[in-house]
Simulated assay, not measured.
Amino acid sequence: MSSHDIFLGETIGTAVLILLGGGVCAAVTLKRSKALNAGWVAITFGWGFAVLTGAYLAGGVSGAHLNPAVTIGLAIEGGTKWSDVPLYLASEMLGAMIGAVLVWLVYYGQFQAHLTDPEVLAAHRTDGDEGMVDPKAAPKAGPVLGIFSTGPEIRNPIQNLMTEIIATVVLVLAILTQGLNDGGNGLGVLGALITSLVVVGIGLSLGGPTGYAINPVRDLGPRIVHALLPLPNKGGSDWSYAWIPVVGPLIGGALAAFIYKLF
């Protein structure tokens, strides 16, 4: 597998992953979208299909890691050369940022309508002492941040970190036990399908507390794009939380590899 293959496969595959995954979040969140309020089940299946599509595209080219936690897990397990890891990680980050920009382009009109809607702005402003909306208060972080990155329902760093670690262990163990990198053939058709269903299962079962990043670049790349895009009234990018969906999945991927090698 050449460096060219790794770069193209991981960049394109991860871009499509984020385009479709972020796209379902935008479809469910933004006003003037036909899928508005479709709910959590739509999001989990949307992300599952996003993984399936990205894996199909990149599987025969780069092995379709699409996730630094998977790359680290496969490197520890021995299926990926450590010398290739930096290129995998850089390509995955680039792809994630490209995918996030594409989500913005596809839903450009909906972003503008949503973020200039008085009702939406009022819902994300800081309440005054008497519970009334303060018109001078800045919007809270993330009127649309959830389209780009994850956030906890209860902000407890230890719980949030453990949730991401455990969910990522499940994902990477499921990948390692399929032998997806055997012989350099990459992610096979059946493996891609199984992995996408595992992602749906993780979302339905373990995604409630944090939104299940289970992939550092899935969260960090789009979060950077959110910070850079010229979105009106977009709020902050919640950088105080941003380390958890990066560190948690990386720990989870490494733990999964050690568990795999141990047993």
Rank of each mutant, 00 (worst) to 15 (best):
G236D: 15
A35Q: 11
L66T: 02
F111Y: 12
T126D: 14
V144S: 06
H65C: 05
D182H: 04
G208K: 15
A69Q: 06
L228F: 07
L171G: 00
L171F: 12
P157V: 01
A192F: 14
M93T: 05
L187K: 14
D117S: 06
A256V: 13
D219H: 12
H114C: 10
A15V: 04
M162I: 11
T210Q: 06
V101R: 02
S240Q: 13
L180C: 05
L8K: 15
V16P: 00
I158G: 01
W82K: 02
G128N: 13
F45Q: 02
P118E: 15
I12C: 09
V189E: 03
V133F: 01
E153K: 07
Y107T: 07
K140I: 09
L105C: 14
A167T: 02
M132K: 13
E77V: 00
N160C: 08
S205E: 12
T44G: 02
G23D: 00
R223C: 11
R218F: 10
D84F: 04
W82H: 01
V246P: 12
T163A: 08
G13V: 09
L115H: 09
I154K: 12
I147L: 00
A75S: 14
D127S: 09
G109R: 12
Y88L: 01
G146L: 03
V247P: 03
P118Q: 12
L193P: 00
R155K: 14
I166S: 14
Y108E: 10
Q178Y: 05
L121W: 12
V144P: 01
A58L: 03
L94V: 15
D182C: 00
T210P: 06
L220A: 10
T11N: 11
P222L: 08
I6C: 04
K31T: 12
Y108N: 13
V85L: 13
P139Y: 05
A55G: 06
T150N: 05
I154A: 07
G54R: 14
L250H: 07
H124Q: 11
A50T: 02
L115N: 11
H65S: 13
T29I: 00
G221Q: 08
A75Q: 06
N37L: 07
L206W: 07
E119M: 02
I18S: 00
W243M: 13
A58I: 02
T210L: 04
D182S: 03
V169G: 04
L250G: 06
A123H: 13
I224E: 13
G186T: 12
A137E: 13
F7H: 12
K81S: 15
V101W: 10
S205Y: 11
L171H: 02
T177D: 10
A58T: 08
G128D: 15
I175R: 06
G236E: 15
A174Q: 04
T116P: 07
G252I: 13
V101A: 09
A122V: 11
G146Y: 02
L161G: 07
Y241L: 15
G253L: 10
G131A: 03
G191R: 14
S91D: 05
A75C: 10
S237C: 07
A137Y: 12
L36E: 00
A138D: 15
A96Y: 01
V24E: 04
N160P: 08
A26E: 02
N160A: 11
G59K: 11
P86A: 02
D84M: 04
G146A: 02
P222D: 07
N233R: 14
E92S: 05
I165D: 10
A254K: 08
I214S: 04
